[in-house]
Design a protein around this nucleic acid. Structure first.
Length: 425
RNA sequence: GUGAGUGUAGCUCAAUCGGCAGAGCACUGGACUGUGGCUCCAGGGGUUGAGGGUUCAAUCCCCUUCACUCACCCCA
C-alpha cells in the first residue's frame, strides 16, 4: 500500500482520461466562440458569504457540503461549490464586464462539494458553465439552449433528453408554493419521511421524489406551470416557440425543480439513462434576481453548467486518440546512437513526433517498442548502414523498407514520411 | 449523515465441504544472433486490505477496523 493516496472523492486524471478531457474542452472552446462567449477564469477560493447569499442558506450545498475554512485573518473562505456566483461576483467587480450592453462568459474548472462519492459524483468535480447576462428576452433562453444542444452534438453524444420547465418569479412563485404546501399537507400521511421534512425545507423538491407512495400523490399535485403570472407565461411560451422553430427536441417536465434557490422562470436539464442514479449531465436556468441579491443592479441573466465527469463517461474513448508516434529510431550499437541522438531533436524541431530507442536492445525488441508507441515509421541504423551510408526506413503498416542517405537523413526522412502521412486515409 | 456490496499478482478475475494460493492479460527471456503484431515454451512476481478470534488447519467461518463501489439523501 502506498503511503499517500488521493483524498476520498478526489481523483487523479491519468493521461488517457486527461486527453479526452482536453479534447472535450477544446471542442467546447470552439463552440462557445461561435456563440460569442468569452472565457473567464475566477479563483476557486471565495468569501464564504458569496455562496451562502446566492445559493440559499437552507440548501444542502450550503448547509453541509461546502468546504469552508478560516483564513489566517479569521475571515471565512470557501472552495467554490458552483460557478455562477463567482462569475456574477466578477461581473459586478469589473466595470469592463458590467458596462457592456450584454455579457456572455464561459468557464471550465473544478468545483468542490463534500458529499459521499457515488457513480458520477465526486467531491472535486469539474464543470463547463456559461452565463448570459443582461436581458430578460426569451431569445436569450433559446440561445442558451441551442448552444447547449449544439455542444453535445459537437461531442457526438446522442440519446439525451432536454427537459424544461418554468419555476415562476417572485410574483407568482410564492402563491404557487403555498398551493403546493396546502395540497401536500392534506396528503402528509402518505408522504415518506424525507418528503415530510422537505415540506418545511424545500416543498418543490417533493415533486422529484422517487418513492412510489409519494409519486402517486405527486401526479395530482399543482404544477408551477399552471400558476405562472402573465409575464412568466408569455416568456415560457416564447421559449417553447423558439425551440420549435429551431427544431430542438424537448419535453416539458412540469415537476422539474432546481436545487439552488436563485433560479427563476426557465429551468432545464439535459438527462441521460446511461449514468446510473446521477442522470443529469447538464442543468441550468434563468436567475433574474441573483445579481441584485449580490448587491448589483437589476440585471437579468441565464446560465447552465455541464458536469464534465458525466460527459466524459458518455464518450467512447476509441473515438478520441492522441496522435500516433510518427517516427521511432532504432540504433543498433553505440556508433548508431551517437549519430541519431542529435537527430531526435532535429526531427522534433521539424514537428515530427519521434522517439529514440535503446542502443543496447536488439532490433526485435526495438521494433516491439515501436509497436507499443504505435509508430508509423521506424528508422534503423546499425553497422551495415553506417558502412553503406544508407539508413533503412521501415513503414510499420505496409512493411515496406527504403534506403535513406545518411548525409541528408533528416530532410530525406521528412520528405518520405510527411508526404505519405498527409494523404487522406 | 443512512443502507448494502466488494477487497486475492501491475490489470481482470478463479480457488469445490475449511485442506499445498491459481489462470488470462501485461512484463522479461528463449524458439528466431539485424526485422514488430501471430504462435509455442520458460521465468519473475503475493503479508489473500489490516488486526484479532474459532480450528490440527482459514482466501473461505466469527468480531473489529480501513479502503473502494453502488444506492438513499443531494446534485452537474
Amino acid at each position: 500500500m502506498p503511503t499517500f493516496k488521493t483524498l476520498k472523492g478526489f481523483k487523479d486524471l491519468l493521461p488517457e482520461e486527461s486527453f479526452i478531457w482536453e479534447s472535450l474542452a477544446s471542442t467546447a472552446r470552439e463552440t462557445f466562440d461561435l456563440y460569442g462567449f468569452s472565457m473567464i477564469q475566477t479563483p476557486i477560493l471565495e468569501p464564504s458569504d458569496l455562496f451562502t447569499q446566492s445559493i440559499g442558506t437552507t440548501t444542502d450545498i450550503i448547509e453541509k457540503e461546502m468546504y469552508t475554512f478560516k483564513d489566517r485573518d479569521k475571515s471565512k473562505i470557501s472552495l467554490r461549490p458552483e460557478g455562477t456566483a463567482s462569475v456574477v461576483r466578477a461581473y459586478l467587480e469589473h466595470p469592463t464586464l458590467s458596462q457592456q450592453p450584454y455579457t456572455k462568459l464561459y468557464y471550465i474548472g473544478p468545483m468542490f462539494r463534500h458529499e459521499r462519492p457515488q457513480a458520477g459524483r465526486l467531491r472535486q468535480f469539474h464543470q463547463i458553465g456559461a452565463e448570459s447576462i443582461g436581458e430578460i428576452n426569451p431569445n436569450r433562453d433559446i440561445e442558451m439552449l441551442a448552444l447547449l444542444v449544439h455542444l453535445f452534438e459537437q461531442w457526438n453524444i446522442a440519446g439525451l433528453t432536454l427537459e424544461i420547465n418554468s419555476l415562476g418569479c417572485p410574483v407568482c412563485r410564492p402563491p404557487y408554493r403555498q398551493q403546493l404546501v396546502d395540497f401536500l399537507t392534506q396528503a402528509i400521511h402518505a408522504l415518506c419521511e424525507d418528503c415530510v421534512r422537505r415540506l418545511q425545507t424545500n416543498p418543490l423538491r417533493i415533486l422529484d421524489c422517487k418513492k412510489e407512495g409519494c409519486r402517486a400523490h405527486i401526479g395530482k399535485a399543482p404544477a408551477s406551470r399552471d400558476f405562472l403570472c402573465l409575464e412568466c407565461d408569455i416568456h415560457f411560451k416564447a421559449v417553447e416557440e423558439g425551440l420549435h422553430r429551431l427544431n430542438i427536441p424537448y419535453v416539458v417536465n412540469r415537476h422539474l425543480v432546481r436545487g439552488i434557490d436563485y433560479y427563476t422562470k426557465t429551468a432545464f436539464e439535459l438527462t441521460t439513462t446511461a449514468l446510473g442514479a446521477q442522470n443529469a449531465v447538464a442543468a441550468g436556468g434563468r436567475y433574474d434576481s441573483l445579481i441584485q441579491t449580490l448587491g448589483g443592479p437589476q440585471v437579468h441573466a441565464i446560465g447552465f453548467a455541464i458536469g464534465l465527469e458525466r460527459v466524459a463517461k458518455l464518450i467512447n474513448p476509441e473515438t478520441i486518440q492522441p496522435n500516433p508516434l510518427m517516427l521511432f529510431m532504432a540504433p543498433l550499437g553505440e556508433r548508431a546512437h551517437m549519430l541519431l541522438f542529435p537527430m531526435l531533436y532535429a526531427f522534433r524541431r521539424n514537428k515530427v513526433k519521434s522517439e529514440l530507442g535503446d542502443r543496447n536492445m536488439n532490433l526485435k525488441r526495438q521494433l516491439k517498442q515501436a509497436d507499443h508507441f504505435k509508430a508509423r515509421y521506424v528508422l534503423i541504423i546499425g553497422d551495415d548502414e553506417l558502412g553503406s551510408g544508407y539508413a533503412v526506413l521501415r513503414n510499420m503498416v505496409t512493411r515496406e523498407q527504403q534506403k535513406i542517405p545518411l548525409v541528408t537523413l533528416v530532410e530525406s526522412t521528412i520528405a518520405k514520411i510527411v508526404q505519405k502521412a498527409d494523404r487522406p486515409e
